[in-house]
Design a protein around this nucleic acid. Structure first.
Lengths: 330, 330
DNA sequence: CTGAAAGCGCTAACAT
DNA sequence: ATGTTAGCGCTTTCAG
């Protein structure tokens, strides 16, 4: 079933059929009706591949995220898909994992599939040294980075101000009388660094002592948090508050604290990051940072669509995070 | 940059270039080298769209899931993508939400994009009355259903035996001396019904009294669980165990129980479903059913790939769930 | 082993 | 307002 058969049945040329399909205004109403009748009758469905080849646009976006099983990425991917869909785009999803080489491979594959644009979800996409692979991609299609950024002609970014968020967390912890605040994190990506910086500057601004041994890098996941807490305990840390870069780490810390007989928040206050469902499932519930992943995703999608529509849009947007106070630090 | 330029540079015909790209054996080694040199030099990248049009296969699979933000779907989507990728397929992801009409629309769009096959994730995809839309799709491309099933020539399915799982949960609760077991669930999809049936038959097999008012349908999410518990409390239910169709409901129930001053598992045992990360974040940690979504997804992907390769494969696979005992029901 | 040529189904000038 | 036609970049007979 193709445009030719429809044309034959309707007694018109394929150009006319194409016109009514793409509802071009230049078609006489009667003609349009004839064609539409044929369309119905033959149960015609346009072939998007052929259209892509001819029109040189696939109406599909490539989305790279390291792992959708992480709720942050899942949220981003969900919103991206909804937004793109609304604008008539499909989304090819790639879970790239951590390795640079794998990511490069995915970018290549997406380029072969002729996606109209790409979005990279997460600050892990910005390499410390060399980002030429991203620059290369951006020579071909527009790129938007969600929660990391890179300077470039055809590169756009929308980020949450994680440094500010961390700063504020420390600030409000300090205002609650905490002077000894530990920080536990897992990765030192772009946003990981921003948070760490926020912690430092927050401590400084509040005039609190920074103790390097209380800044702990641990593995990802609930166990990472647990182990960090154990380490803190073993060094008899006197901290009265623990701030983490991820809710899941905070969950592990809560577990450890419980095991050690510490009361939260009375003995130790705990602050998470992400405002994931997790934060409402722990006991006590977690105070956390809402880093607005939904907003970031929506903005990212809209930016890309604008670029593709030839409208202009700022290359960089910053979204303000928000602190959410729950039981672990009321 | 296309096959013509490569051909010119290598001094061969486009057919030959095509052959070396698809490494057909019928190419003289020297010729192959010449072509490969040109490929390198021109930095050639095949155009997958053109290839799709000519070869009548896109090497992409359409995946429908109601919402990737739910960790069950996220897990499925992740594994599907990894497996398909390994076999050389990309994946277009659609979050269909709950409405039938929306799902139909997505199926149509995927058909236009000429996906080579589709997978429907979740038992919500089987409608109670009319599944002709799925049959229609299966006329065009093979369909595999993940955790629901439908009879059909070109339809494949892999399901977890949720009924068995629920049966076993009740059985083991009974063996721990529980005689009064409540059941809380949110949706009555294919698998929702299976679980409910398992609960019934488990209760019967154990000779326990079934009380309709202890079988509670509530809304999805942590609040749904909380509210169900409150209802139970208001009717002064004497149940000593509560089984839920989702971990997140169990989390809400735990919250409610805590609020009401009940000890878990001493006063009331709680059993969840899914073995999500959640189950390890609550206090106490949740006993739950591992319904093997990763295995389902892997099998689903492999089935589809086999079908696409023309190999044969059973139309239906059943995976056995596994109970995981943690603190909420040791 | 290699090349010529006919599509795949559609869009987009360009004519009429 | 409608039709003709030349691609889009590749695969795939079919000859040679």
């Amino acid at each position: 079933m193709n445009i030719y058969e429809v044309a034959k049945k309707a007694g018109v040329s394929i150009a006319t059929v194409s016109r009514v399909i793409n509802n071009s205004p230049n078609v006489r109403p009667e003609t349009r009706e004839k064609v539409e009748a044929a369309l119905k009758e033959l149960n015609y469905r346009p072939n998007a591949i052929a259209r892509s080849l001819a029109a040189n646009t696939t109406k599909t976006i490539g989305v790279l995220a390291s792992d959708v099983r992480d709720s942050y990425y899942a949220n981003a991917v969900y919103i991206l898909e909804q937004e793109f869909r609304m604008m008539g785009y499909d989304m090819i999803l790639c879970n790239t994992g951590g390795e640079l080489e794998k990511r490069k491979k995915y970018m290549g594959l997406l380029l072969e599939k002729k996606v109209d644009g790409m979005v990279f979800v997460g600050s892990v996409f910005k390499e410390k040294k060399d980002n030429t692979h991203i620059m290369d991609v951006s020579e071909v299609v527009p790129v938007v980075m969600l929660n990391s950024s890179l300077q470039g002609n055809n590169i756009y970014s929308v980020v949450c101000d994680d440094q500010l968020a961390a700063f504020k967390v420390v600030e409000s912890l300090a205002s609650r009388g905490h002077r000894e605040i530990a920080y536990v994190y897992d990765v030192d990506s772009f946003s990981g660094l921003a948070k760490l910086n926020g912690y430092y500057s927050g401590m400084q601004a509040a005039g609190l002592p920074i103790r390097q041994e209380w800044i702990i890098r641990t593995e990802s996941g609930i166990n990472g948090g647990y182990m960090a807490l154990i380490r803190l305990m073993e060094m008899q840390a006197s901290c009265t508050a623990i701030f983490t870069s991820e809710d899941i780490l905070a969950a592990g810390i809560l577990k450890g604290l419980l095991a050690k007989g510490k009361k939260v928040p009375d003995d130790v206050a705990v602050f998470g990051y992400n405002d994931s469902v997790l934060a409402r499932c722990t006991t006590p519930e977690l105070s956390t940072v809402d880093n607005k992943v939904g907003v970031l995703a929506r903005e990212a999608a809209r930016m890309l669509c604008k670029v593709l529509d030839g409208e202009d849009t700022p290359h960089h947007k910053i979204i303000e995070p928000e602190l959410v106070f729950r039981e672990s630090c009321p």
